[in-house]
Amino acid sequence: MTSEKSLLLVHAHPDDETIGTGATMAKYLAEGARVTLVTCTAGEMGEILVPELAHLAADRDDALGDHRRGEIENAMAALKAPDGSEVDHRWLGGFGTYRDSGMTWSEDRTHALPDPDARENAFWYADLTEAADHLVTIIREVRPQVLVTYDEFGNYGHPDHIQAHRVATYAAHLAAVPTYKKELGEVHEIDRIFWVALAESRLRERLRAVRAAGDAEALGGMDPEGPLPMATPDVDIAAEIDGTPYAEQKVAAMRAYPTQMDMEQGMFAMTNSLGTTAWAHEHFRIAKGSVDGGSLTDLFAGL
């Protein structure tokens, strides 16, 4: 039975949505909610892990964006509901409007910057109001109660993640202003905004488990007892989605990105020692709205 729940997710590149929110997307699709994903760029500047596809790189054939468009289609197919319902996937402004900005580090490595070879239409250089208006139109059309995006640092500093946060935050505000550009649709206010997070305790548990299984290089070889700058303290986690029933789908969607994810070694190899459930739990911070009674297990609870 379909519900009136509408979930909107704003992500920077193909694969970001699956890594951080794939199980959540599959869960709400299976429950009959409308799930809309907006991808801001095609990831044209990404690294390529498949040697025979190296020619797609930006400094060669510059065809990675088109290839990743096919990858995200396959990933979304993997997340579809048992009744065949699929994610309503959109490109911000249309495919190719905004290009991947790439990423490099400042000399003191305190912050990330766009790649020096980023083009004029790189997402980092986008006019904020223009980009937000593209999203306002979508917000007013699909009328989500819940929006999911990144925090102000883009979770790890990538310029496109930071810009996605800015665009999503601004668009959510503008969409709720009754007098703002009425031609973009009927005014709509989003009840809750969440930021994707990685709970510190859960990450430490995973790291200890993969180390115990002899897979010390999984998750980039991070030390389970050391600093974890990408993790969020548990006290700041407002919601945890247990996507265990959808873990197989999430991992299948991750495998749809062979140019970006090596599931056999390194960062994404947890499935080797922990199985697909290693990726089942997804966490969120609350950026707008209230969470009464502690951490939520349903992003729509009480709405």
Rank of each mutant, 00 (worst) to 15 (best):
A171T: 04
L228V: 03
L203H: 00
L219M: 12
Y180C: 08
E189T: 15
G185I: 13
A171L: 07
P233V: 14
E186Y: 06
P229A: 11
K182P: 00
R206D: 02
I193V: 15
I193A: 13
A213H: 06
R211A: 14
V177M: 15
G220V: 06
D215V: 13
D191F: 01
L228H: 09
R211Q: 11
G214E: 03
G226V: 02
T232Y: 02
L219I: 04
A175E: 03
P178R: 13
M230W: 14
P178E: 08
L174V: 02
E225D: 15
G226Y: 09
M222L: 15
P229V: 05
D223M: 02
V196E: 09
A218Y: 03
P229Y: 13
R192G: 03
L174A: 12
R204T: 00
D223C: 08
L198V: 14
G185W: 11
L184H: 09
L207K: 03
A175L: 09
R206Q: 13
A175K: 11
A216M: 02
A199L: 10
L203I: 12
V177C: 10
E225F: 07
G185P: 08
E205S: 13
V196N: 12
P224N: 01
L203D: 00
F194L: 04
V177Y: 14
R208F: 10
A172Y: 07
A218N: 10
S201N: 12
L198N: 05
R204Y: 08
A172V: 03
L219E: 01
Y180W: 10
A231W: 14
G226T: 11
E225S: 02
D223G: 06
A197P: 11
L184A: 00
A231V: 09
R204D: 01
M222E: 12
A231R: 11
